[in-house]
Design a protein around this nucleic acid. Structure first.
Lengths: 126, 126
DNA sequence: GCGCATTAGATGCGAGCGCATGTAGTTTCG
DNA sequence: CGAAACTACATGCGCTCGCATCTAATGCGC
């Protein structure tokens, strides 16, 4: 059966690669640090930005996560004491999310696991 | 802030690419053909194999989908009349899944949408 | 043949997601 | 100013998923 569909092969390869990594990240971050992949990514964005300008929408845009999913993710992180919500005084609809000391610590630990897994799967290719 | 983490960039890029495509596939296959991305992938595997040797486990292995998820996916496809389950007589625990005429037709239509979307996002790169 | 471990698939359960909607705060315009 | 349109986030709902478990059919040792 001749392949006239390199596109499909490319897509399946992408899917496989993504799922393998995402699945391992989710499992190992969960087991070792008690947070999901999306929760880690959220913390990661917060740590990177540092300046407390991060509102929910900014986070959602950076993460390919729906606004509702992000809202719940932040709620879980808050319940775990890893982030705090703060009302934005300038626009009181807005909510600043900022990471706590515990959150920063958790992120630091998890980041090692995260990087290790990426290293195994992506190799330092190119 | 210097990037000492090309791995993370690579991973984010992979995630973004995967999610954009997967999300579009799921949405447009759903709107235009009434099937989800996973349902299409299942049909696609069935069409490709043709010979009716496809048991559930083979499907699951080829698709990075858990056994339970596949079981339900096949159940949905069967409910929609797109596939049929047939008991394997040699090993009566096994279930052969085989595609119906309607399933083949639906797959044919959906495959055009599928390929078009892949083409837009992946480009005929390389 | 008869039990016990194993295997294929189905299913109960809890979790996260996206969509649609709800709620509160803000802007726009008559 | 006041009503209507809009915005930021929260939440109800239905869906799919993975995990653990259940059921039924083999296979293996005796």
């Amino acid at each position: 059966m001749p392949r006239q569909t390199p596109l499909v092969d490319q897509w399946r390869s992408l899917t496989l690669r993504y799922n393998e990594i995402a699945c391992r990240l989710d499992r190992e971050l969960g087991e070792a640090h008690g947070i999901s992949m999306n929760e880690f990514e959220t913390l990661d964005r917060l740590v990177a930005h540092e300046c407390e300008s991060l509102r929910m929408l900014d986070l959602a845009a950076a993460m390919y996560l729906s606004q509702s999913a992000l809202s719940r993710t932040v709620a879980r992180l808050e319940r775990a004491g890893l982030v705090e919500r703060a009302l934005c005084e300038a626009d009181r609809r807005g909510v600043f999310v900022h990471i706590t000391a515990a959150g920063r610590a958790r992120h630091g630990d998890a980041a090692r696991t995260h990087l290790a897994i990426l290293g195994e799967h992506l190799e330092t290719a190119d």
